[in-house]
Simulated scan of single mutants.
Amino acid sequence: MTTARAATILLLLVVAACAPRQLPQLPPPPVVAPSGDLRLWPNRDAIQSACLNDLAATGAEFELIAQAQPGKGGCTLVNGVRLIRTGVPLNRPVEVTCPLALRLMQFEREVMQPEALRVFGKPLGSINHAGGFNCKRMTGNGARISEHGHGRAIDIWGFTLADGTRISIADHFRARGREGDFLRQVSRQACRYFSVVLGPNADASHAKHFHWDISQWKRCGA
């Protein structure tokens, strides 16, 4: 072998050793994402995805839940989420539709929190509810399914301020002073955000809580 040929072979071996090796293609890693991350649910329809994107953008904490099968009473939960907190925690997670969760988030940010700061000089610490999705009939009209039966309603019994002060509809709605002022103002403003607003001024069935829903009907019983 000539010196020139040997040098060429040596050069080719050095180049081959330095060249990057082709690695086998690996499957993508599993997605580990925070609750509410839309990558976990890539097949949602466009409307639902838009709502979830809007809800996630607000900073709300939530989990996506499977669509509930129709129950014996015709109750369903479509486009549902388990809402854990808006800008503040809920006393416990609540299952509602994404549109209702988004509306509640907007109402907390635009009305409830500013009102708490105005009246008490302190922010809200939590929103205390008595339930969202619940298969039951409408109060006063047993022939119709309640909006709770479709996750389009939520019942609120009170609030807690950041310093631990508790405010309840049952104890303070008709009271004089800051607590009553706050609750009555929140109830009135709710009519701009929700379709049906019921409370102590509406009927005896809502003497101890607010009912807010996004049904096709319209009633302001604040």
Rank of each mutant, 00 (worst) to 15 (best):
residue 55 L to Y: 00
residue 197 V to K: 12
residue 87 G to W: 02
residue 155 D to M: 12
residue 141 N to K: 04
residue 149 G to P: 03
residue 208 K to R: 01
residue 182 F to L: 15
residue 121 G to M: 10
residue 159 F to Y: 04
residue 41 W to Q: 04
residue 209 H to E: 10
residue 62 F to P: 00
residue 173 F to G: 07
residue 167 I to C: 06
residue 43 N to I: 03
residue 182 F to N: 11
residue 111 V to P: 00
residue 151 G to C: 09
residue 169 I to H: 01
residue 162 A to M: 02
residue 180 G to P: 09
residue 138 M to H: 15
residue 27 P to C: 14
residue 188 R to V: 09
residue 148 H to L: 06
residue 24 P to A: 14
residue 32 V to Q: 04
residue 106 Q to T: 00
residue 132 G to F: 08
residue 211 H to Q: 10
residue 109 R to A: 13
residue 61 E to V: 05
residue 127 I to L: 03
residue 97 T to W: 05
residue 122 K to T: 14
residue 49 S to I: 07
residue 75 C to H: 09
residue 95 E to A: 09
residue 168 S to L: 11
residue 13 L to Q: 07
residue 198 L to H: 09
residue 216 Q to H: 15
residue 67 Q to D: 13
residue 79 N to H: 12
residue 22 Q to E: 13
residue 135 C to G: 11
residue 90 L to D: 07
residue 10 L to M: 10
residue 48 Q to F: 03
residue 107 F to D: 07
residue 160 T to K: 13
residue 219 R to M: 14
residue 161 L to A: 01
residue 131 G to Q: 05
residue 48 Q to V: 05
residue 55 L to P: 00
residue 165 T to D: 05
residue 16 A to R: 07
residue 71 G to C: 06
residue 60 A to H: 02
residue 174 R to T: 13
residue 154 I to Q: 01
residue 205 S to W: 13
residue 36 G to M: 06
residue 49 S to E: 15
residue 126 S to Y: 05
residue 203 D to C: 05
residue 120 F to N: 01
residue 120 F to K: 07
residue 69 Q to S: 12
residue 142 G to T: 14
residue 19 A to S: 09
residue 93 P to K: 01
residue 209 H to C: 05
residue 147 E to I: 04
residue 196 V to L: 12
residue 163 D to M: 00
residue 206 H to Q: 04
residue 178 R to S: 13
residue 180 G to A: 13
residue 40 L to P: 01
residue 198 L to A: 14
residue 67 Q to H: 08
residue 69 Q to D: 14
residue 77 L to W: 01
residue 42 P to Y: 06
residue 60 A to G: 00
residue 5 R to F: 11
residue 103 R to L: 03
residue 81 V to G: 06
residue 46 A to L: 11
residue 193 Y to W: 10
residue 188 R to Q: 11
residue 54 D to R: 04
residue 170 A to M: 11
residue 124 L to H: 03
residue 25 Q to Y: 01
residue 219 R to H: 15
residue 191 C to G: 07
residue 111 V to D: 03
residue 170 A to L: 15
residue 110 E to I: 03
residue 1 M to D: 05
residue 131 G to T: 13
residue 31 V to E: 14
residue 179 E to Q: 15
residue 43 N to R: 11
residue 115 E to K: 13
residue 120 F to G: 08
residue 124 L to S: 04
residue 71 G to Q: 14
residue 28 P to Y: 07
residue 39 R to Q: 02
residue 18 C to K: 13
residue 103 R to W: 07
residue 162 A to Y: 10
residue 202 A to Y: 12
residue 109 R to Q: 09
residue 105 M to T: 12
residue 38 L to C: 13
residue 180 G to V: 05
residue 97 T to R: 09
residue 73 G to N: 11
residue 46 A to M: 08
residue 174 R to P: 06
residue 57 A to Y: 02
residue 190 A to G: 05
residue 136 K to A: 09
residue 179 E to D: 15
residue 68 A to N: 10
residue 99 P to C: 08
residue 18 C to D: 08
residue 34 P to F: 03
residue 106 Q to D: 05
residue 205 S to F: 04
residue 170 A to R: 14
residue 60 A to S: 09
residue 131 G to S: 12
residue 122 K to E: 14
residue 89 P to N: 01
residue 126 S to L: 04
residue 141 N to F: 10
residue 167 I to K: 06
residue 58 T to R: 11
residue 68 A to I: 04
residue 134 N to Y: 08
residue 24 P to R: 09
residue 207 A to Y: 02
residue 158 G to C: 02
residue 187 S to N: 07
residue 124 L to P: 00
residue 103 R to C: 03
residue 23 L to M: 15
residue 2 T to A: 03
residue 5 R to Q: 09
residue 49 S to R: 15
residue 144 R to G: 02
